[in-house]
Design a protein around this nucleic acid. Sequence first.
DNA 1: GTCTTTCTGGCGGTGTCTGTCATAGTGTCG
DNA 2: CGACACTATGACAGACACCGCCAGAAAGAC
Lengths: 216, 216
Amino acid sequence: MTDTARKTLTAERVAVVGLRERRRARTREDIEAAALGLFLEHGYDATTIEEIAEAALISPRTFFRYFASKEDVLLARGRDEMTLAARSLAERPPEEPLMDSLRELLQIFAALHSTDRERQLCRIHLCTTTPHLAAAFLEMIHGMELVLRDFVALRLGLEASGRRPRLVAAAFGTAFRVAAETWQESDGAEDMTLLVRENVETLVAPLLEGGTAPGP
Amino acid sequence: MTDTARKTLTAERVAVVGLRERRRARTREDIEAAALGLFLEHGYDATTIEEIAEAALISPRTFFRYFASKEDVLLARGRDEMTLAARSLAERPPEEPLMDSLRELLQIFAALHSTDRERQLCRIHLCTTTPHLAAAFLEMIHGMELVLRDFVALRLGLEASGRRPRLVAAAFGTAFRVAAETWQESDGAEDMTLLVRENVETLVAPLLEGGTAPGP
DNA sequence: GTCTTTCTGGCGGTGTCTGTCATAGTGTCG
DNA sequence: CGACACTATGACAGACACCGCCAGAAAGAC
């Protein structure tokens, strides 16, 4: 874990300790809000860092002290949530069937999702309409798949480089991605949680039923 | 189809007509070769457009008349091949079972793949080691999935926005992606064609067997 | 209160990518 | 073969993302 990441986590977990941390968290949220608003109004590409900085009452230079890049404003939150959720799988009882653990992961996503519904929809909308963001969005899910792959390998007692851990993790990521796309295209009308669940049952479950090696 | 794309296709299909087209194709290949060499030598990020241009004996400005971006040097070929191959599915007999058509698509990929093995390996290696390229690579596959989705919907008599066409197309793309990753990690030792085939049978076939709606 | 640590803004630089224009080479038609 | 249209090219200027650096301001520890 990087130093920056640890600090961020600490600041979030201990909630608020000093004035400095509170201010920093506040500024970060200001930037996110300002950016999202401008993106929705003028489009992602047409919005410059300078405009975001001005709207958030900071200097352009400071923007990059809060976010690594322009796309990060939209994806950092999701990225953190995803990897943290995937990592939390390590705390599940080791004897629990893998498919049950994955279903538990869905619960965590559902909880995260319900707290931030409106923004999620905006974010995914931007991601699916802007090519550059679409690529970054896919890569974000790919990052979660890597964490997931190691967990699946551990649980199945296989090497992480093997075929089955790869496919299970990728199938899960794909189930999530397709659900997000479907949800976005329905303008949030469909039930995202249900969509992911269905897709996981359709894509992932067949890979796992019948023990550890159902395939050829 | 864009004007540029049409021209490219024409130039490829009619092979070589005038001196102009031949020269243009030659320059394009020079740029590709120069770029790939520099990427492998110094890394993708450490290579500048200026260096590529110099190695290819063109001006930096001209580089962007052949490729839309730096990443495009590596991905344009694959992108074209993928979408063309996916589009060629339209010429399969309409009564052919969908799964058979998809297996046919694998054949096309295998043929393309065998003609350019070494470079493919280099390209995928770069894509899996450079974050920015990884994202673009995933997006390339996503583009193929979109074409595939429409085809699947047409064949199954469903709407392209439905769940099943989405999942089938995404599963196919994922099968391909995982195979590419596995192949790259084995340094080309494994049989890429076989890997894709296995993954498709594992991931896609379960979605299609038992008619048009096997799921719940 | 001082001292240390952290945050911030500004400056300058690199690199990607684009619009524009003049020039030179290519294809075509009379 | 000569006039014409078309296209490719290179040079220039510019927008924007991003980063290293430094000096000043603010916060926390003592």
